[in-house]
């Protein structure tokens, strides 16, 4: 556990590009291109007989926001859930191909999924705070990973996570009230704070704003932009404006196929594929 924590601190604080592993994997990286954090090759996902995700090759770069867009049922959430192996809990779901994080195979049978999920946090579509106090919601992750053994350390982690999620000022006087009593936007920021409390390297967000009003959405987007300094973020979104606003890189999925991936600006101004062009101009989806 100590070891994990150290690597987390490393990647969490280093803001200049590149850990050694990632650089070795990606020798062709240009000077302005950040190193690859997660490398997927020929990823296929099956739900029973249905082939949900087909031959996906995708690189996700460190300290960038990568957005996954595409019409409903195109496989973007499925891909997201492959990264922290949340598909494991779904009956009849089978993942093929390789997903590597810092050169380590995520689907290596020797890899402990608990430690993987400590390194890859996740925020869901609908805010899902536990029916516990705000404090316990944040402290839940650190407790199960044995981080923050003393009360004061835990207080620090909780306060720090809430501050980074921009929620501290709003809730500092009612840490003992249930997390389910907050407003929708606050609940979602609580869930983000809960995810960053275990100091992950990657944060996956599955349509984090789809249940929120525009003002709460703006706050979350602002927060995502700040979090980019310390975390690698992958966000699934239905809103192309949101993808354009928050992400540096965009991947367009259609019918389980990764159609196109490029810098966000490129995708929205000069898409190479006709399907991408049709989707972003609103011809389908």
């Amino acid at each position: 556990m100590q070891e994990v924590q150290e690597t987390m601190t490393d990647s969490g604080t280093v803001s200049t590009p590149g850990t050694a592993g990632a650089r070795a994997e990606n020798p062709a990286a240009l000077a302005n291109e950040k190193p690859v954090k997660i490398k997927s090759r020929d990823v296929n996902v099956f739900y029973g007989e249905a082939h949900a995700l087909k031959h996906v090759d995708l690189d996700i770069r460190q300290h960038e926001v990568t957005s996954l867009i595409g019409p409903s049922g195109c496989g973007k959430s499925t891909y997201l859930r492959c990264i922290n192996r949340m598909n494991d809990v779904i009956d009849g779901c089978r993942v093929e191909g390789s997903i590597e994080m810092d050169g380590e195979d995520v689907y290596d049978p020797k890899l402990d999924v608990v430690q993987l999920r400590a390194r890859v946090g996740m925020v869901f579509q609908k805010p899902n705070p536990f029916p516990k106090s705000i404090y316990d919601n944040i402290a839940y992750g650190p407790r199960i990973h044995g981080i923050g053994s003393t009360k004061s350390e835990m207080d620090e982690i909780v306060q720090g996570s809430l501050q980074r999620a921009g929620l501290w000022e709003e809730v500092k006087d009612r840490m003992d009230t249930p997390g389910t009593g907050l407003s929708g936007g606050q609940q979602q920021r609580l869930c983000i704070a809960r995810a960053i409390a275990v100091n992950p390297e990657v944060i996956l967000m599955d349509e984090p704003c789809s249940a929120l009003d525009p003002i709460a959405t703006a706050k979350i987007e602002e927060l995502i932009d700040e979090l980019r300094q310390n975390f690698t973020i992958v966000i699934v979104t239905h809103s192309m404006q949101q993808a354009a606003r928050v992400s540096q890189r965009t991947a367009f999925f259609h019918l389980g196929i990764l159609v196109e991936t490029d810098e966000t600006e490129q995708i929205f101004t000069n898409p190479k594929d006709q399907r991408t062009q049709d989707y972003i101009t609103g011809r389908f989806g």
Binding site: N84, M86, V89, V113, V114, Q115, L116, R117, A118, G121, M122, F124, K126, N128, P129, F130, P131, Y140, G141, I144, H145, C191, R194, A195, V198
Partner: peptide
Amino acid sequence: PQSLRDGAYALGATKAETVRQV
């Protein structure tokens, strides 16, 4: 709700921890 289970699993909780604590 399944979302609570997902939330706990995504934080790295094991099945037993999820059952006991959530």
